[in-house]
Write a protein that binds this DNA or RNA. Structure first.
Length: 426
RNA sequence: GGUGAGGUGGCUGAGUGGUCGAAAGCAGCGCUUUGCUAAAGCGCCGUACCCCAAAAGGGUACCGAGGGUUCGAAUCCCUCCCUCACCGCCA
């Protein structure tokens, strides 16, 4: 949520930054300003009347204690009461309307973000490793998975419909080994605190991390008790400290959590349907940070390299992309995507997004009222960040495609062997 | 799921219709005094919003949330949420 004061005082700047997203959101600003004006006008008048009522009511109390008549005053206050009721309604309606509008306006992209309206303007920041030289024919994870009985997509469909995965045997174990490796890495070497949060959350949490109100169609919800299945651990973990004021000495907070991620992927039917690259339910290890505004961009850099470390340890080629203004997600001010090379996917290999590392600045914190107390005793909104570290199915696909051997077996990277319990799958 | 008790400021805890935004204590900050790792005294010490060009200042709201009664509500009534205890059920 943007600061209404920023919109009020620097409307042109806000419009200009929003326009770089290409979503037309800058057109909402006039509307917000209009409502804001109405709201404040109603509030000012309302408060004047309330003040008057308080004064007269006290007088009534005083008169009564002196056994004097207060009928005249009571009539007067009753009349003011009616005006107050009326104005309260108007002020509340305006406030609600304003909040609703603000919740639907995306964050301002960071000033340095590459300008562009779509993914083609994204910038490759760096890459690591090289594409492996494999003997033809290079097979994709679906073929490999079927032959080595690592996953059973047909039966997963029988259970739950399209877009679900059932890992089996060594596949299930490989997935578990990867989760374990990542959690150990981030807790032991990168200083994150491991969390195991609820997978069901209240509506407020979904608003806090910007999934709602705008993207309700993409979420799985339980209507009866108004709860939502988490689409990422970002939701429960970032909201962990919602409505709190943290001591500045506790920042930055660094959390890592493994959770399943539930996504309806509404409107994406037909895209990337082969295999396990786009599904309704997948596992992910997520990194979350709560930081001070001064440090948040440094923290974004280290969070990104923390995620990259997983791919380096596994020896998988990847590149890091900085998203352009038009490709940023709703709440993000700046985002790095990490794309791993999957040699068997697409035509002649493909880069798969396995992590998206973002700084939301105070956009989420404002929505969830997450603050910290500065050394001078003043409260400020925190900055929040998150990034996958990493998403499992695509990592799984890249791993087995990269490590496939001529005889159809898959080699397990050394770092993973203690977790997996073998050096290869055949 | 049932029954009962409760939700007050950073914490503890008073307060059952009118100078209560809220006593008192603790913690915190400042000053003074005495002085051996501390004590005593005094003062300050919530949040959000509105008015004001800004500062100063003023005002409004907030005692779990939302409604209602009333001239006036932390206090009375209703609904909901949450916490605790006991019972039931249960991996």
């Amino acid at each position: 949520m943007l600061d209404i004061r920023l919109i009020r005082e620097r409307a042109d700047f806000v419009r200009e930054r929003l326009a770089t997203r290409g979503g037309g959101d800058e057109q909402k600003i006039d509307n917000v300003l209009r409502i804001d004006g109405e709201r404040r006008k109603a509030e000012t008048e309302l408060q004047r009347l309330q003040s008057e009522r308080n004064r007269l009511s006290k007088e009534i109390g005083a008169k009564r204690s002196r056994k004097e008549s207060s009928d005249e005053l009571e009539t007067q206050v009753r009349k003011i009461g009616e005006e107050i009721a009326d104005l309260t309604q108007r002020a509340n309606a305006a406030e609600e309307e304003q909040k609703k509008l603000l919740l639907e306006i995306p964050n301002l992209p960071h000033g340095d973000a590459p300008l562009g309206s779509n993914a083609s303007a994204n910038k490759v920041v760096r890459s690591w490793g090289e594409k492996p030289k494999l003997r033809e024919p290079v097979r994709d994870h679906v073929d490999l998975g079927a032959q080595l009985k690592l996953l059973d997509l047909d039966r997963a469909t029988k259970l739950s419909g399209s877009g679900f995965i059932c890992f089996t045997g060594a596949g299930a174990k490989l997935e578990r080994a990867l989760i374990q490796l990542m959690l150990d890495l981030h807790t032991r070497e990168h200083g994150y605190l491991e969390m195991s949060p609820p997978f069901l959350v209240r509506r407020d949490c979904m608003i806090g991390t910007t999934q709602l109100p705008k993207f309700e169609a993409d979420m799985y919800g339980l209507e009866e008790n108004q709860m939502f299945l988490v689409p990422t651990a970002e939701v429960p973990v970032t909201n962990f400290h919602r409505e709190e004021i943290l001591p500045i000495v506790d920042l930055p907070k660094k959390f890592v959590a493994y959770t399943p991620c539930f996504r309806r992927e509404a409107g994406s039917a037909g895209r990337e349907t082969r295999g396990i690259l786009r599904v309704h339910l997948f596992d992910k290890v997520e990194l979350v940070k709560i930081a001070t505004p001064e440090k948040s961009y440094d923290e974004l850099e280290s969070l990104t390299t923390d995620a990259e470390r997983v791919l380096q340890l596994l020896g998988l080629h990847y590149r890091v992309i900085e998203l352009c203004t038009g490709d940023l997600t709703f709440g993000s001010a700046k985002t790095y995507d990490i794309e791993v090379w999957a040699p068997g996917s697409g035509q002649g290999g493909a880069y798969l997004e396995v992590s998206s590392c973002s700084n939301f600045e105070d956009f989420q914190a404002r929505r969830m009222n997450l603050r910290f107390k500065d050394r001078d005793g003043k409260n400020h909104f925190c900055h929040t960040l998150n990034g996958s570290g990493l998403a499992l199915p695509r990592l799984f696909a890249a791993l087995i495609e990269t490590n496939q051997q001529a005889d159809g077996s898959v080699h397990i990277p050394e770092i993973l062997q203690p977790y997996f319990g073998a050096a290869e799958i055949r």
